[in-house]
Design a protein around this nucleic acid. Structure first.
Length: 258
DNA sequence: ATGACTTGCGCGGCAAGA
Protein backbone atom coordinates (compact mmCIF):
# COMPACT_ATOMS: atom_id res chain seq x y z
CA UNK A 1 0.00 0.00 0.00
CA UNK A 2 1.37 3.39 -1.04
CA UNK A 3 0.61 6.35 1.21
CA UNK A 4 1.70 9.85 0.22
CA UNK A 5 1.55 13.37 1.61
CA UNK A 6 1.62 16.62 -0.36
CA UNK A 7 1.18 20.28 0.53
CA UNK A 8 -0.27 21.52 -2.77
CA UNK A 9 -0.43 25.26 -1.92
CA UNK A 10 -3.98 25.77 -3.27
CA UNK A 11 -5.76 22.70 -4.60
CA UNK A 12 -7.57 24.80 -7.20
CA UNK A 13 -4.28 26.15 -8.61
CA UNK A 14 -2.84 22.64 -8.55
CA UNK A 15 -5.72 20.44 -9.76
CA UNK A 16 -3.94 19.47 -13.00
CA UNK A 17 -0.73 18.65 -11.09
CA UNK A 18 -2.75 16.61 -8.63
CA UNK A 19 -4.51 14.58 -11.33
CA UNK A 20 -1.17 13.98 -13.06
CA UNK A 21 0.31 12.77 -9.78
CA UNK A 22 -2.60 10.40 -9.09
CA UNK A 23 -2.23 8.91 -12.60
CA UNK A 24 1.52 8.39 -12.43
CA UNK A 25 2.16 7.58 -8.76
CA UNK A 26 -1.14 5.80 -8.10
CA UNK A 27 -1.08 6.22 -4.31
CA UNK A 28 -3.66 4.22 -2.36
CA UNK A 29 -3.98 7.10 0.09
CA UNK A 30 -2.97 10.74 -0.45
CA UNK A 31 -2.86 13.30 2.36
CA UNK A 32 -3.25 16.87 1.12
CA UNK A 33 -2.52 20.14 2.90
CA UNK A 34 -3.04 23.84 2.19
CA UNK A 35 -6.16 23.42 0.09
CA UNK A 36 -6.92 27.16 0.55
CA UNK A 37 -10.60 26.68 -0.20
CA UNK A 38 -13.90 25.77 1.37
CA UNK A 39 -15.29 22.24 1.07
CA UNK A 40 -17.69 23.09 -1.75
CA UNK A 41 -14.89 24.54 -3.90
CA UNK A 42 -12.82 21.33 -3.75
CA UNK A 43 -12.35 19.69 -7.20
CA UNK A 44 -14.33 16.54 -6.31
CA UNK A 45 -15.26 15.72 -9.90
CA UNK A 46 -11.67 15.67 -11.17
CA UNK A 47 -10.53 13.52 -8.21
CA UNK A 48 -13.43 11.09 -8.41
CA UNK A 49 -12.86 10.70 -12.15
CA UNK A 50 -9.45 9.24 -11.25
CA UNK A 51 -11.10 6.63 -9.04
CA UNK A 52 -10.58 8.27 -5.66
CA UNK A 53 -12.86 9.14 -2.77
CA UNK A 54 -12.15 12.52 -1.18
CA UNK A 55 -12.77 13.55 2.42
CA UNK A 56 -12.23 17.28 2.84
CA UNK A 57 -11.80 19.61 5.79
CA UNK A 58 -11.60 23.01 4.11
CA UNK A 59 -11.46 26.64 5.15
CA UNK A 60 -11.99 29.91 3.30
CA UNK A 61 -8.71 31.28 1.95
CA UNK A 62 -6.23 29.43 4.14
CA UNK A 63 -5.26 26.05 5.52
CA UNK A 64 -7.48 23.11 4.61
CA UNK A 65 -6.61 19.39 4.56
CA UNK A 66 -7.98 16.35 2.76
CA UNK A 67 -7.61 12.60 2.48
CA UNK A 68 -7.96 10.83 -0.86
CA UNK A 69 -8.34 7.07 -0.98
CA UNK A 70 -9.28 4.43 -3.52
CA UNK A 71 -11.61 2.88 -0.94
CA UNK A 72 -14.46 4.61 0.90
CA UNK A 73 -13.23 6.05 4.21
CA UNK A 74 -14.75 7.23 7.46
CA UNK A 75 -13.11 10.40 8.67
CA UNK A 76 -12.87 12.60 11.74
CA UNK A 77 -12.18 16.31 11.21
CA UNK A 78 -10.13 18.45 13.56
CA UNK A 79 -7.40 17.75 16.12
CA UNK A 80 -8.84 17.05 19.59
CA UNK A 81 -7.87 19.21 22.55
CA UNK A 82 -9.20 22.70 21.76
CA UNK A 83 -12.87 23.15 20.86
CA UNK A 84 -12.18 26.84 20.07
CA UNK A 85 -9.63 26.04 17.34
CA UNK A 86 -11.31 26.97 14.05
CA UNK A 87 -8.36 26.35 11.73
CA UNK A 88 -8.75 23.38 9.36
CA UNK A 89 -5.46 21.56 9.91
CA UNK A 90 -6.25 17.93 10.73
CA UNK A 91 -8.27 15.08 9.23
CA UNK A 92 -8.00 11.39 10.17
CA UNK A 93 -9.37 8.20 8.65
CA UNK A 94 -9.30 4.45 8.99
CA UNK A 95 -8.47 2.85 5.65
CA UNK A 96 -8.93 -0.84 4.84
CA UNK A 97 -5.65 -2.59 4.01
CA UNK A 98 -5.95 -6.24 3.02
CA UNK A 99 -7.12 -8.19 6.06
CA UNK A 100 -6.51 -5.23 8.35
CA UNK A 101 -6.59 -1.45 8.42
CA UNK A 102 -4.26 1.49 8.56
CA UNK A 103 -5.18 4.71 10.33
CA UNK A 104 -3.97 7.79 8.42
CA UNK A 105 -3.98 11.47 9.38
CA UNK A 106 -3.33 14.47 7.13
CA UNK A 107 -1.76 17.24 9.20
CA UNK A 108 -1.00 20.87 8.39
CA UNK A 109 0.94 22.03 11.40
CA UNK A 110 1.05 25.82 11.93
CA UNK A 111 4.02 27.73 10.54
CA UNK A 112 4.38 29.74 13.75
CA UNK A 113 6.26 32.78 12.45
CA UNK A 114 7.05 35.28 13.75
CA UNK A 115 8.15 33.55 16.97
CA UNK A 116 7.47 36.43 19.40
CA UNK A 117 3.73 36.34 18.66
CA UNK A 118 0.62 34.32 19.39
CA UNK A 119 1.28 32.53 16.09
CA UNK A 120 4.17 30.70 17.73
CA UNK A 121 2.32 29.91 20.95
CA UNK A 122 -0.48 28.50 18.78
CA UNK A 123 2.05 26.31 16.96
CA UNK A 124 3.49 24.96 20.22
CA UNK A 125 0.01 24.37 21.66
CA UNK A 126 -0.99 22.54 18.46
CA UNK A 127 2.09 20.33 18.80
CA UNK A 128 1.22 19.58 22.42
CA UNK A 129 -2.27 18.57 21.32
CA UNK A 130 -0.79 16.40 18.57
CA UNK A 131 1.47 14.66 21.09
CA UNK A 132 -1.52 13.98 23.38
CA UNK A 133 -3.62 12.66 20.50
CA UNK A 134 -0.78 10.52 19.12
CA UNK A 135 -0.40 8.96 22.56
CA UNK A 136 -4.08 7.98 22.49
CA UNK A 137 -3.79 6.58 18.96
CA UNK A 138 -0.65 4.58 19.78
CA UNK A 139 -2.55 2.88 22.59
CA UNK A 140 -4.73 1.29 19.88
CA UNK A 141 -1.65 -0.68 18.77
CA UNK A 142 -2.59 -0.53 15.10
CA UNK A 143 -0.77 0.61 11.96
CA UNK A 144 -0.83 4.40 12.12
CA UNK A 145 0.61 7.00 9.73
CA UNK A 146 0.69 10.63 10.86
CA UNK A 147 1.54 12.42 7.62
CA UNK A 148 1.74 15.99 6.56
CA UNK A 149 3.43 19.35 6.51
CA UNK A 150 4.85 19.58 10.03
CA UNK A 151 6.59 22.92 9.45
CA UNK A 152 9.46 21.45 11.48
CA UNK A 153 13.10 21.10 10.38
CA UNK A 154 14.07 18.26 12.72
CA UNK A 155 17.89 18.40 12.44
CA UNK A 156 20.66 20.52 10.90
CA UNK A 157 21.05 18.03 8.05
CA UNK A 158 17.42 18.72 7.10
CA UNK A 159 18.28 22.22 5.85
CA UNK A 160 20.70 23.33 3.14
CA UNK A 161 21.65 26.31 5.30
CA UNK A 162 20.72 25.54 8.93
CA UNK A 163 22.22 28.81 10.22
CA UNK A 164 19.66 30.75 8.18
CA UNK A 165 16.85 29.10 10.18
CA UNK A 166 18.22 29.59 13.69
CA UNK A 167 15.62 32.13 14.80
CA UNK A 168 12.78 30.67 12.76
CA UNK A 169 9.67 28.98 14.15
CA UNK A 170 10.44 25.93 11.98
CA UNK A 171 13.75 25.31 13.71
CA UNK A 172 13.71 26.88 17.18
CA UNK A 173 14.71 24.55 20.04
CA UNK A 174 11.16 24.43 21.45
CA UNK A 175 9.81 23.39 18.04
CA UNK A 176 12.39 20.66 17.57
CA UNK A 177 11.94 19.46 21.16
CA UNK A 178 8.24 18.88 20.56
CA UNK A 179 8.98 17.01 17.33
CA UNK A 180 11.36 14.81 19.32
CA UNK A 181 8.56 14.43 21.84
CA UNK A 182 6.45 12.87 19.10
CA UNK A 183 9.25 10.50 18.11
CA UNK A 184 9.87 9.64 21.75
CA UNK A 185 6.32 8.29 22.01
CA UNK A 186 7.54 5.49 19.76
CA UNK A 187 6.84 6.98 16.35
CA UNK A 188 9.31 6.47 13.49
CA UNK A 189 10.23 9.20 11.00
CA UNK A 190 9.81 7.09 7.85
CA UNK A 191 12.47 8.87 5.82
CA UNK A 192 15.06 8.62 8.59
CA UNK A 193 14.32 4.92 8.96
CA UNK A 194 15.77 4.47 5.48
CA UNK A 195 18.47 7.15 5.11
CA UNK A 196 20.83 9.25 7.21
CA UNK A 197 21.79 11.35 4.20
CA UNK A 198 21.84 15.13 4.20
CA UNK A 199 20.36 17.03 1.26
CA UNK A 200 16.94 15.34 1.33
CA UNK A 201 14.43 18.18 1.09
CA UNK A 202 10.68 18.48 0.56
CA UNK A 203 10.29 22.26 0.28
CA UNK A 204 12.03 24.95 -1.75
CA UNK A 205 10.88 28.56 -1.42
CA UNK A 206 9.56 30.33 -4.51
CA UNK A 207 11.89 33.25 -3.74
CA UNK A 208 15.55 33.92 -4.46
CA UNK A 209 16.00 30.93 -6.76
CA UNK A 210 15.82 28.51 -3.83
CA UNK A 211 15.02 25.56 -6.12
CA UNK A 212 17.73 26.37 -8.67
CA UNK A 213 20.28 26.75 -5.86
CA UNK A 214 18.89 23.69 -3.98
CA UNK A 215 18.31 25.76 -0.82
CA UNK A 216 15.69 23.37 0.50
CA UNK A 217 14.39 22.12 3.82
CA UNK A 218 12.78 18.85 4.92
CA UNK A 219 9.52 19.69 6.68
CA UNK A 220 7.02 17.16 5.26
CA UNK A 221 7.09 13.99 7.31
CA UNK A 222 5.36 10.63 7.75
CA UNK A 223 5.52 9.34 11.33
CA UNK A 224 4.76 5.67 11.83
CA UNK A 225 3.52 3.60 14.75
CA UNK A 226 5.54 0.43 15.43
CA UNK A 227 2.87 -1.63 13.65
CA UNK A 228 3.23 0.58 10.55
CA UNK A 229 7.03 0.79 10.77
CA UNK A 230 7.20 -3.01 10.75
CA UNK A 231 5.56 -2.93 7.32
CA UNK A 232 7.70 -0.12 5.86
CA UNK A 233 9.47 -1.16 2.66
CA UNK A 234 10.16 2.08 0.74
CA UNK A 235 10.30 5.86 1.16
CA UNK A 236 10.56 8.36 -1.68
CA UNK A 237 10.63 12.11 -2.11
CA UNK A 238 9.10 13.04 -5.47
CA UNK A 239 11.62 15.79 -6.11
CA UNK A 240 10.90 16.13 -9.85
CA UNK A 241 7.49 17.56 -8.98
CA UNK A 242 9.21 20.83 -8.00
CA UNK A 243 10.57 21.24 -11.54
CA UNK A 244 7.13 21.25 -13.16
CA UNK A 245 5.47 24.36 -14.52
CA UNK A 246 3.66 26.36 -11.79
CA UNK A 247 4.62 23.88 -9.05
CA UNK A 248 3.72 23.81 -5.40
CA UNK A 249 6.64 24.86 -3.20
CA UNK A 250 6.37 21.43 -1.51
CA UNK A 251 6.81 18.03 -3.21
CA UNK A 252 5.03 14.73 -2.44
CA UNK A 253 6.62 12.26 -0.02
CA UNK A 254 5.63 8.60 -0.36
CA UNK A 255 5.93 5.43 1.66
CA UNK A 256 5.11 1.85 0.80
CA UNK A 257 3.79 -0.45 3.50
CA UNK A 258 4.20 -4.10 2.54
C1' DA B 1 22.13 41.57 -0.69
C1' DT B 2 18.35 45.74 0.26
C1' DG B 3 14.56 41.87 -1.93
C1' DA B 4 13.81 38.34 -4.39
C1' DC B 5 7.62 34.66 -5.23
C1' DT B 6 2.80 32.76 -4.97
C1' DT B 7 -1.85 32.67 -3.40
C1' DG B 8 -6.59 34.38 -1.73
C1' DC B 9 -9.58 38.05 -1.53
C1' DG B 10 -11.79 40.91 -4.46
C1' DC B 11 -10.74 44.91 -7.33
C1' DG B 12 -6.44 47.65 -4.02
C1' DG B 13 -2.89 46.33 -2.18
C1' DC B 14 -2.52 43.47 2.06
C1' DA B 15 -1.95 39.02 4.76
C1' DA B 16 0.10 34.69 4.89
C1' DG B 17 3.26 31.46 3.79
C1' DA B 18 8.30 29.28 5.29
Amino acid sequence: MKIATWNVNSVRQRTEHLVRYLRTAKPDVLCLQELKCIDTAFPYAEIEAEGYNAAVHGQKGFNGVALLAKTPIEVARGLPGDPDDEQARYIEAVVPNGEGVVRVASIYLPNGNPPQTEKYSYKLAFMDRLIAHAKDLLALEEPLVLAGDYNVIPMPRDAADPAAWEDDALYLPQTRARFRGLLNLGLTDALRATSDAAGLYTFWDYQAGAWQRNKGIRIDHLLLSPQAADQLSEVAIVKESRAEDKPSDHVPVEIILA
